[in-house]
Computed example of a mutant assay.
Amino acid sequence: MSLTAHIRSHRKPRRSASTIAMRAGVASGVLGTLAVGTAAGSANAAEPVTQTLELPVLTGDLAAQVAQSAQATQQAAANYQLHAERDAAAAAAAKEAKKDLADAKAAAKKKAEAARKAAAERATRNAERTTLSTTASSGSSYSSTSGSTATGSAAAVIAFVKAQIGDAYVSGGTGPNSWDCSGLMQTAFKQVGIDLPRVSQDQSTVGTQVSLDNLQPGDILYWGKAGSAYHVAVYVGDGMFVGAQNPSTGVAEKPLSYDPPSGAVRVL
């Protein structure tokens, strides 16, 4: 027996075929597992691609929803604006109606005041006429002039107004064929060089105030108060006067009892 027979060899022992086959199988299994994991990983990695392909559809739906929401918002804003405009119009109408009511009340108050004033003036005139009529019926009024005859300037004035009898009455008329009361008086007295004011209110304050029971031909008669007279005429004697009365009678000669005057002024 050799001296080295019990000494182990330093060379690696040979692997058996079964060991090699087992290791190959293990390696194959590991590789298979890796392949399966890789495939699964690849599959999982592919899924986002599939989801990404579906995104346009989701994006389209979202855009439709956004557009619908925007349209609804716009419609709501339009409705709000319409309501606001209606409210503003209603407020303006209410304000205008309130103003119209106030104006109507003011106008009614003014009209009532004017009617009251006119009624008071009519009552005063009626009272004055009643007094004058009573005096005339007693025979004491105008007695000193009942038979007087006009001379000089008075005769010229009376001749002029009598020549206009039958002419029409027209408010603002100053001749030659139509007159109002003060227009006739102004033109008549201009024939003798006397310039009278244009309106009856002013004509009732010229010259000297005279009593109605001491009238003379050529005196200017007035109806109403001195300074606010509403009618004038000229006394022609014998208890008569001539004036542009109204549209129905025109220029006419009437007795003092027809419409007793309120007063008289003398300018001749």
Rank of each mutant, 00 (worst) to 15 (best):
T135L: 13
A39P: 00
V210S: 13
S138A: 13
L55T: 13
T249W: 07
L184G: 10
A154E: 05
E54W: 15
D61L: 14
G60T: 08
R198P: 00
A46Q: 06
S171Y: 15
S262Y: 09
S228R: 13
A168V: 12
A93F: 04
K254T: 03
L221P: 01
K109M: 06
S262H: 09
G243D: 00
N177Y: 11
T208C: 01
V66Q: 15
P56Y: 00
S200V: 01
A123Y: 09
T4R: 12
N246I: 08
T38P: 00
A107G: 09
E121M: 11
G239V: 04
A163S: 15
G172L: 05
A46D: 04
A24W: 13
N79Q: 10
T124I: 03
A77P: 01
G172I: 03
K117A: 15
S248P: 02
V192I: 13
D202Y: 14
L31P: 00
S248Y: 03
Q68E: 12
D238G: 12
T151V: 04
A127C: 08
C181I: 07
Y142F: 10
Q186T: 10
E85P: 00
V265W: 02
A119R: 15
A150P: 11
V265M: 02
A252I: 06
R86L: 07
D103C: 01
R198Y: 09
Q65R: 11
V206A: 06
L101F: 04
G239I: 05
V267C: 03
Q201D: 06
